[in-house]
Structures are given as C-alpha cells and as structure tokens.
Simulated assay, not measured.
Amino acid sequence: MATPSQLRQWAREVIDVEIEALQGLQQYIDDAFVAACELMQQCKGKVIVMGMGKSGHVGNKIAATLASTGTPSFFVHPGEASHGDLGMLTEGDVVLAISNSGEASEIMTLMPVIRRLGIPVIAMTGKPDSSMAKLAQVHLNIKVTKEACPLGLAPTSSTTATLVMGDALAVALLQAKGFTADDFALSHPGGALGRKLLLRVDELTHTGTQLPAVSESVTISEALLEVSAKGLGMTCVLDDDGHLSGIFTDGDLRRVLDARIDIHATAIGEVMTRNPITLADNLLAAEALKLMEEKKINGLVRVSPQGQPLGALNMMDMLKAGVL
C-alpha cells in the first residue's frame, strides 16, 4: 500500500507535468489561433463542438463556456451525428472538432458531409500532420510533450491543454465582442451567479418603516434607540426638509464614547458623519458590495435624485442574499 508521502509526491509530479504542458501551449497562440477567433467571431450561426471520449467531455465544457460568454455554441456527439444529429448543423455554423490524435474515425466519417454543407472546420489536435488537421480550414495545435499518466496512456496533460485552449478562445472572443457583466448575467439568471449579477440594491434595501431615520435635533441616546430598533447598525440623519444630511453608525458611536461625549445632551447632528457615500437606484448589488469593501464600510443608504433617503442596507443583507 502506498505511503502518504508517495501519494503526495505522485500528485505533485502530475501537477508539474501539466504546468509544463500549459507553458508549452503558449507557442501555439499564433496566426492560426487568430484565424480561429476570426472565423468564430464572424460565425452567423453557432459554433458546433465535436469530440469523442475524453475529448468529448472537454468539448462539452468548451461549448458551455463559449455559450455563456457570448458565442452561441453547443456540443454534438460525433457518434450520434452519424445517425441523424448532423441535421443540427445549418448554414452559417462553424465546427470545432477536437481529437488529440487527429484521427478520430467518428469525426473523420463526418468530414465529407460537413465540407459538402460548406461549413468551415477548426480542428484542435495534437498532431499538425493528422488527417483532421489537413482537412480543416484552421488547425489549432494542442501538442504536449508527455502525458502526466506514468504509463503515457490516460489523457491527462493533453486534455488539460485542450481545455485551456478552449478557454483561451472563449475569453479572447468575449473581449473582442465587448461582452459585459450584464450580458453574462442574462445567461446566468439562476444560482449564485444570478444573484450576484442581476440583483439590484433597490431589491435589498430596507424601506418605509424599516428604514432607520432621525432628525438632526434628537440626542445621541434617542438616535441609538432607532439604531437598535431597526437593527442595521446605523441610522439616517435628516434635515428639516427630509433630505439626508448624514448618517450615524456603530463606528461613530465608538468614537463618541472614546471622546466621552454626553450622549443624553448632545444632538446627533453634531457627531454624525456628513456627506456619506450613497447608492443610486440602478446600482447592482455586486457593485454596492465592491463599494463597501473598498471604502471599508458596513452600511449604505439609497437616495433619490433629490437627496431623500429611500432605503438602507448592510453587509448582512448582502450575505443573506448570497451576493457575498
């Protein structure tokens, strides 16, 4: 039975081999890579990804990454394509065919039909002189010096290189198209990504009677009752016209106590934080979180264009909503 030290050593050797493989991949970001990007960017239909075995599993992920980053794409199994699924291909599509050997028979069987349909093919192989590479309009080289498998049989370094080349294509296209976080959110409406990218501050803020607010003239002790009652660790401070003139937070309270200020006789307007950072209605929750982290603050107030407080939120609200 292997010892713990042997297991760790073998694992480190795998990582070292795969890092070396990825460093070698840099040389293949060449004119062919540019040509593949241009072909996919000009595609009027969809990028159809194909691959058998491990290449197919990686191809599935590449297709999903392309689709979620602004390049419409889906995976077609070459074996199923020979039995009717090739009908999914239409004029204007581009095929991204993946095979480390470049000789996958299931894909080679499809090549004459794909060419007859006038659909351009990008081949991603580890052998530039392979049949697939020669038949494709563009060949992307993913050759690795060796597999991380000590037997040299299990696809390891080669599949990692394939995956990274696919990511390189997807991200290069994302940036070329000017794909934004809002665009990304439209294809990720569910789960944590959806919450982070679609949720806006107006959906999180405490409003109405839940909004902590006091006038400038009340004493600090009276303001603390409002802070405690609303449970946000802060309160808005309003002028006579109902506009936000400042806020008072737990941090302000610590400074007041350190200064030994009489909380029963001093007006909140004298110790509040003036000109606080505020939120606009259309701000994303993720943007508000970034602002809070950058400014090292735990609470924010949402205001109207006229400066009236509309709602407030704190870091706990971000946590509950899954944004944090």
Rank of each mutant, 00 (worst) to 15 (best):
V237W: 06
K127W: 04
T219S: 13
A267T: 11
R195Q: 14
F75W: 01
S105L: 13
G87T: 15
P276R: 12
E226C: 10
L22N: 11
I119Y: 02
L96M: 14
A35Q: 12
E147P: 03
E216T: 11
L151E: 12
L232H: 09
L173C: 11
I261Q: 06
D93L: 10
L153K: 01
A259R: 12
E91T: 15
A168I: 14
R260D: 10
K54M: 07
C37L: 07
K196F: 01
I277W: 09
Q9R: 14
I19P: 00
L197D: 09
I122G: 05
V301R: 07
G79I: 14
V17H: 05
P309G: 13
T145I: 08
R195D: 10
G307R: 12
S5G: 11
L244W: 00
A285H: 06
H264W: 10
L284A: 05
R115E: 14
T160Q: 04
D31I: 09
A161P: 06
L283G: 00
L110I: 05
E91R: 12
L89N: 10
S245V: 11
I48P: 11
Q42G: 08
L319R: 11
G152K: 00
M315K: 05
Q306P: 01
A133P: 00
V171A: 08
L238T: 10
T273C: 03
A170G: 02
A285S: 00
M40T: 01
K196A: 04
K290L: 14
Q23H: 11
L253H: 12
A170E: 08
M315I: 09
A181H: 08
G166Y: 00
H57G: 04
K46G: 01
K44C: 01
S131K: 06
E270K: 09
G24Q: 10
I19V: 10
G233M: 11
S304I: 07
V121Y: 04
A172F: 11
P78T: 06
H264I: 02
T278F: 03
M108N: 13
V171I: 15
L110H: 15
M52V: 15
M88V: 12
G152D: 05
T156S: 14
L225P: 01
E103Y: 00
H77T: 08
P112T: 15
G208P: 02
P150C: 04
S304F: 04
T266A: 10
P4Q: 06
T162V: 07
A223P: 05
D167A: 05
V256P: 03
L110S: 15
G178Q: 13
S105Q: 15
V17I: 15
T145S: 13
T207C: 02
G51N: 09
I247C: 05
L244A: 05
S187D: 12
A223Y: 02
L257G: 08
A213I: 02
L110G: 08
V49Y: 05
T71A: 00
V95W: 00
G208S: 13
H83I: 15
S68M: 08
V256C: 09
I220D: 03
A185P: 07
L96P: 00
V164R: 07
H206G: 03
S245A: 13
A192I: 10
K54L: 02
A2F: 08
E103V: 02
Y28K: 07
